[in-house]
Design a protein around this nucleic acid. Structure first.
Lengths: 191, 191
DNA sequence: GTCTATAGCGGGATAGAC
DNA sequence: GTCTATCCCGCTATAGAC
């Protein structure tokens, strides 16, 4: 069987979300792919190379997915819901956490260039959320106190932590976080 | 120099919060303590033993600290503030995250008995927060929609994720989370 | 409680044939 | 693109002397 880079990244991504950067090995990859360690090294010489490629693919997919959310949902409140639904997909998986959360929790052991991609992932998510919140407040659909920046950081923190807690204690924990976010940012003056 | 278990646990705790369970070694401990690896093994034969002792000490300290918060602060809103201030101490450290967050993000690679202690840590924190929120709602000092259980999970998620983001991107991120929590749960009908 | 020494394994990584 | 074979290192853990 012949294996290509995207397949290796698929397995690496799963291992990163289920375990952690430090705790998965070339042997884990090669076992799962049905090839040898040496073959994996042929595609990604070092673990840094592998993580660099993986985080760059995360960046591309992040842009794609946020773009799709914007395309399919015109209203800010729908965009926020779509974002939460996307993250709930991870909670529903049962044993995966947010890749960004996995990477950030091991930040001090990551190669520096990987860290830069991790930073960029967070920044992009934050900027997008700030846009959603800003737009929502402007059109009166979302209502919240404090700055959109603070609010975006709050939401991302809750989602990242919520997914970790959900894996440990069950999906209902992420659903609780989701409900609370919706409550906290949804217009209370209905009718 | 003669070293005792608590000192080893101090170093282990620091390494757990700065790095991760998988990525610190007996050599890290022995270097930091000025003794050999074999000497560390004398105190904690296996890494599981070490983590077990560490998480049990976390449980004791958690009870102590939450108890102290209750002693020193009669009002629910003060208790919530004291809790957030305590967690901000980690954000202020610059390179430490919440131990519970570090452990939960590597949950799938932890020995099972350690996982039980991790569960207990979360449950205790949640129960305590539910009590604070319940009491605060009752006396009108805290005001929030949704169940106290959902709210407690939300707060713990935001704190855990917020500390990870803070380490990566700066303390102002945890302060933002802190502000937003205060806003979301504080009585808005002032005067 | 500390040490030296070592076992035994698994990690990342490379060389070179097919 | 895959393989076998191998290097070297660091890890967890143990034995036994002081």
């Amino acid at each position: 069987m012949t294996v290509h880079k995207p397949q290796i990244l698929d397995v690496a991504s799963e291992l990163l979300q289920k375990r952690s950067f430090t705790s998965f090995s070339y042997k884990d990859l090669s076992d799962s792919l049905g090839i040898t360690k040496a073959s994996v090294h042929h595609h990604f010489q070092t673990k840094e190379d592998l993580l660099l490629a993986l985080t760059e693919r995360y960046r591309v997919r992040q842009r794609t997915r946020l773009g799709e959310i914007d395309e399919k949902n015109a209203r800010p409140v729908e965009r926020l819901d779509a974002f939460l639904a996307m993250m709930d997909g991870l909670a529903a998986s049962g044993d995966k956490i947010c890749p960004l959360g996995s990477l950030q929790s091991e930040l001090n052991v990551l190669p520096e260039r990987v860290r830069e991609n991790v930073d960029a992932l967070f920044e992009t998510a934050k900027d997008w959320l700030v846009g959603v919140l800003d737009g929502g407040r402007e059109c009166g659909e979302l209502e919240f106190e404090g700055s959109p920046e603070d609010s975006a950081v709050m939401i991302l923190s809750a989602v990242q932590g919520g997914l970790q807690i959900s894996r440990a204690r069950g999906r209902e924990n992420f659903l609780a976080v989701s409900r609370q976010i919706r409550i906290a940012f949804t217009n209370k003056t209905k009718g």
